[in-house]
Design a protein around this nucleic acid. Structure first.
Length: 1009
RNA sequence: AGGCCCGUAGCUCAGUUGGUUAGAGCACACGCUUGAUAAGCGUGGGGUCGACAGUUCAAAUCUGUCCGGGCCUACCA
């Protein structure tokens, strides 16, 4: 269909006025005829587009209507042959009702999809949901607990089924909420990460990564609860006060930089002192961290405190090495009475020995330079047990990789054989009354340290310590085997995953290309540059397994296409559950023996799930999942800026690992929603605003408009003031559409005039403005700067249309005869204006644009099936632009003068005046004389005079050379147009109106004769 | 605590490569109109450009520090 040619279909016609006489008005004007009914006022019969929109009630009806006509499918059909743009939905988590952040996210996405579609692309939108992961696992666990069943007692498959049901319950609810926001998408064919197809695809994606050789088994200390025998995620940890022992431990120096130094002898028999609150980690010690920003010294103990209740562990003559700033504290804790600093100490390249070196700990303890070391507390040296701390692990891995990190503690929190002398001892008590209290490990280690003479001092400390938020039991860091994807291993054309990802970051437009905004580009780049290897295994229940078999003899991962194909096929048929429900041998087939392999039962990091959505939702360009995804000109992702760490990040790594390229070409990010003061919204503070509330109270269009007018890349402030303000902007836009609808009543093709330079200057200028605004709107939409597009539209409506063009042309619209060229020209350009306004606004205000469009063209299907109307370059008219700019400046002087006259009670309405306008400049004077300047000023007349004007004339600094003196308009007031005119010029048949009005009334009367 | 980012009128935003008295719309006040009328038009008040210091003949614009806010990490041996 071609909407452009449908103007004959407008509602009503110019001759459909009712013919009743307004007797009340006649009483006021007994001498003359009441011409009111001959005036073409813009009200529409029945007021089908009232200013009070009733959005909260009408929007849901419209949503229903769009669903009924299958708008989504009509859009696809309409755009089938167009170039494709793929917008890929980042899946929200299928848990709980949607909040305002979801609303902002989905509305911004809707802007992208709708503007692309209307810009002439086919932009499909398949919404999705993220279903696996902890939050659902917790909820379900809680539900089971309420039934008196522990998670460990529920079979994995049953537990997973409950998780699936939980997610399934929320998806339709969230979907309806999204629909209510006016989001146009394929709501009947959404994707989920838990569909069997998705689970199979995710598993296959992981197997693809395995084939690159990037997957390896390593280890990492994780938060571990010995009491619950499980690892915990960061979010499951809470910090509570705990009293811990503190110990100062001596590590004898083996060698130091000071070799050959004058102080060598002073240094070489000294010990480095560390301080820790976890004595049990001493067997795991493998290094000591220092900071090159801290000053260290060697201290010799010269005397010891006397009269102590116990024998101190230090002896006169002992030499210890600590940070200069902390030396006094340490020595006092050690009960030394006097001491002497005998040397400086440079820890660089120094090596110490483990205090238990004679008892199975015969290795060197290197000193490592680390940023995490401070001299606020302790000794300035940090005991480093890579199995038992995040910093410890990081610094060790940085220096030595994963080599040499011991597994000193098992899953019950007992020492393993890698902790000689202590094997079997528990860190925490695992049963009985002392559950969760310190086990024998701490004491055993301290006793042994005393025995070997390595303990310098000890004490107790109350501090914040991590606890399980469920059991409230203390946690430990424990090194556990995990699966990783290597970032720095060359695998594709000699490049590493990190390198490929960085190259792809440069290729993708994060805004640095379209707007020059580099913040998102910098942010993702920084993250990929810095991040460690991707830890992809989780010891959890609700997710997709790492579907791999490890050869027991050499630890390699089985790589067999047939096995992989069986796994994929089985999962596609029965979901990821089959991994647990099917005997290993069924997957391994005849070629491999199950007892030779370890079946990995960890599940994949849920970020791997969502990082794989591109693979099963939009697919490869060569194997897309839908026709609308074939060979897109661009693939777009849009999410909140937190997804630099999340979905953007994991999708990039996953896709670069499996396909060598990012899954997207353009990325758009948005900030977070804040309260009116710019503070974070939180339920506990009670400053949240629900999108459902806005929909009920104001209408979702108000929120959509607010989002479109905001700098969405930054945080979005939301409060009553902003919402009210958006409501005002909405009314202005709506009223503009409403006025156009009224002014265009009965407009038909036959009334159109050619759009060329024969038009009056005002119309030439309006077309010129449409051309300018069109460019701004297109550019704004192309670069996702909704604000720029909307700003251009709003300014056009306010400044150009409402305050100028329409105000001036009201006289023409109301009073000219329908056949008048000027009136026809006005209506023709207003028609073009309406056509563009409805199209430009449709992506932002889909409900209102639709309502306006269908009001004018009731048998049209939907405004959303349109594209942005072409705006011919021939409309660009610099002459008209410049002329009108000049005229408006001069007009401003007249308006100013009128205001003064009004204040002085000389006039009321502008039509009572006929200003004298003194213009010095010949060119400007000619411009004023070339048009009906009185018409522009909405006065009954105007006299344009050469000269400076009298001294007391009104002037404006912005318009030098223009001076205005207001004079009352002579003559009588036209009973129809209210203009003052010379009665001698009147048509004798209509003596009380101007000749122009007489012509119009004559035509009116003739039509009714 | 670290990384990245934000901070221009009551609100949402413009402010080009540093260059005269910092702009717009909305809101507010006042006036006009009563033929866009729970509308329309006009006029006006309102900002030490988060603070301080520096570079410069000149800074909202460049640099540094601080304050407030956000996202992401980390939270301590």
């Amino acid at each position: 269909m071609s909407p452009k040619n449908r103007c004959s279909a407008g509602p009503g016609t110019a001759t459909s006025h009712s013919l009743h006489w307004r007797t009340d008005l006649m009483a006021d004007a007994p001498q003359g005829r009441d011409y009111r009914e001959t005036v073409f006022l813009p009200d529409l019969p029945g007021d089908p587009f009232p200013l009070r929109a009733g959005l909260p009630k009408k929007e849901p009806e419209r949503v229903k209507h769009w669903a009924e006509i299958g708008l989504y499918h009509l859009l696809r059909k309409e755009a089938a042959d167009r170039p494709k743009v793929v917008f890929h939905d980042g899946p929200p988590y299928a848990n709980g009702p949607i909040h305002i952040g979801h609303a902002e996210n989905k509305i911004l996405k809707d802007f992208v999809v709708r503007t692309k579609q209307m810009a002439g692309f086919d932009c499909d939108y398949v919404p999705g949901w993220d279903c696996h992961g902890l939050p659902i696992e917790w909820k379900v666990e809680e539900d089971f607990r309420k039934q008196g069943r522990k998670k460990s007692e529920v079979p994995a498959v049953e537990f997973r089924r409950a998780c699936r049901e939980y997610a399934d319950k929320w998806i339709p609810l969230q979907r309806d909420e999204f629909r209510r926001l006016g989001i146009e998408a394929d709501w009947d064919n959404y994707y989920t990460t838990m569909s069997f197809e998705a689970e199979a695809a995710i598993a296959r994606e992981f197997l693809r990564v395995v084939r690159t050789g990037l997957v390896y088994r390593g280890s990492k200390p994780v938060m571990w609860s010995p009491v619950e025998r499980t690892s915990l995620a960061e979010a499951e940890v809470e910090y509570q006060e705990k009293t811990s022992p503190t110990i100062w431990v001596k590590f004898p120096l083996r060698s130091a930089q000071a070799d050959g130094d004058a102080n060598r002898d002073e240094i070489m028999d000294a010990s480095i002192v560390i301080w820790t609150t976890t004595p049990w980690t001493i067997p795991g010690n493998r290094a000591i961290s220092f900071s090159s920003n801290i000053d260290y010294g060697v201290y010799r103990i010269d005397s010891i405190e006397e009269g102590l209740a116990f024998d101190p562990w230090v002896k006169v003559g002992d030499k210890i090495i600590v940070a200069t700033k902390l030396a006094d504290d340490v020595l006092r804790a050690a009960k030394a009475a006097s001491w002497k600093r005998v040397s400086d100490f440079d820890p660089k390249n120094a090596v110490a020995l483990h205090p238990f070196r004679a008892h199975g700990y015969d290795f060197e303890v290197p000193l490592l330079d680390g940023d995490h070391v401070t001299d606020d507390a302790g000794t300035g040296f940090v005991h480093t047990a890579p199995s038992h701390g995040a910093d410890d692990f990081v610094i060790w891995e940085k220096n030595f990789g994963q080599e040499g990190i011991p597994f000193t503690v098992d899953e019950d929190g007992r020492y393993t054989k890698e902790a000689p002398m202590f094997e079997g001892l528990e860190i925490l008590q695992l049963e009985g009354k002392g559950l969760g209290k310190d086990g024998p490990a701490n004491k055993a280690v301290m006793d042994k340290l005393i025995e070997v003479g390595a303990l310098l001092a000890r004490g107790q400390l109350k501090h914040q310590y991590p606890h399980s938020w469920r059991s409230k039991a203390p946690l430990i860091f424990r090194n556990t085997p995990q699966w990783f994807i290597a970032l720095d291993k060359p695998y594709r054309d000699g490049k590493t995953l990190r390198q490929i990802a960085l190259d792809e970051i440069d290729r993708v437009d994060w805004g640095q290309k379209r707007t020059g905004e580099t913040k998102d580009y910098n942010r993702i780049r920084g993250m990929i540059e810095d991040r460690p290897d991707w830890l992809v295994s989780r010891q959890r229940a609700w997710g997709v397994p790492l579907p791999i078999f490890v050869k027991k003899c050499d630890g390699s991962i089985l790589q067999d296409d047939e096995v992989d194909a069986r796994i994929f096929a089985a999962m596609k048929e029965g979901g990821a559950d089959v991994w647990w429900a099917t005997p290993a041998q069924d997957f391994l087939g005849a070629k491999h023996k199950a007892d030779e392999y370890e079946k990995v039962e960890d599940i994949l990091d849920v970020w791997f799930d969502s990082g794989s959505t591109h693979a099963f939702v939009i697919g490869n360009p060569e194997a897309p999942t839908r026709a609308s995804f074939v060979n897109p000109v661009s693939t777009i992702y849009l999410e909140g800026s937190d997804q630099h760490r999340g979905w953007f990040h994991s999708s990039l790594l996953e896709s670069c690992a499996t396909r060598g390229k990012a899954p997207y070409d353009e990325v758009i990010t948005h900030g977070f929603t804040m309260d009116e003061k710019g503070m974070k919204m939180s339920k506990s503070i009670g400053n949240t605003i629900e999108p459902q509330k806005i929909a009920e109270q104001n209408g979702i269009e108000i929120l959509r408009l607010l989002i479109a007018s905001a700098e969405y890349g930054d945080d979005l402030r939301l409060g009553k003031i902003m919402i009210d303000q958006s409501g005002e902007m909405y009314r202005k836009l709506r009223n503009t559409l409403r006025y156009c609808l009224g002014a265009l009543r009965g407009f038909e093709d036959s009334e159109r005039v050619p759009l060329n330079h024969d038009l009056p200057l005002m119309e030439r200028w309006l077309l010129h403005r449409l051309h300018e605004v069109d460019a701004a709107v297109r550019k704004g939409y192309e670069t996702y700067q909704w604000r720029m597009a909307l700003g251009a539209i709003v300014e056009f409506c306010n400044v150009d249309l409402s305050a100028f063009y329409v105000d001036v042309r009201k006289d023409t619209l109301y009073c000219d005869a329908p056949s008048s060229f000027r009136r026809r020209a006005t209506r023709t350009v207003l028609h073009e204006t309406f056509s563009r306004l409805t199209a430009w606004l449709a992506p932002i205000l889909p409900f209102t644009a639709e309502e306006a469009w269908l009001t004018r063209f009731p048998e049209s299907v939907s405004v959303h099936l349109r594209t942005f109307p072409e705006t011919p370059d021939a409309w660009e008219d610099d002459f008209a632009g410049e002329e009108v700019a000049k005229l408006r400046e001069a007009r401003a002087v007249v308006t100013g003068a009128l205001e003064v006259a009004r204040r002085d009670k000389v006039i009321g309405a502008a039509l009572e005046a006929a200003p004298r306008v003194f213009v010095k400049d010949d060119g400007l004077r000619a411009s004023l004389q070339a048009v009906d300047f009185a018409e522009l000023c909405i006065t009954s007349g105007v006299t344009i005079v050469d000269g400076d004007g009298p001294a007391d004339a009104f002037r404006l600094p912005e318009a030098p050379g223009v001076a205005v003196v207001i004079e009352k308009a002579p003559g009588v007031k036209c009973a129809r147009s209210w203009k003052y005119f010379d009665p001698a010029t009147a048509d004798p048949r209509y003596p009380d109106i101007t000749s122009r009005d007489a012509e119009a009334v004559a035509a009116w009367d003739a039509a009714r004769a």
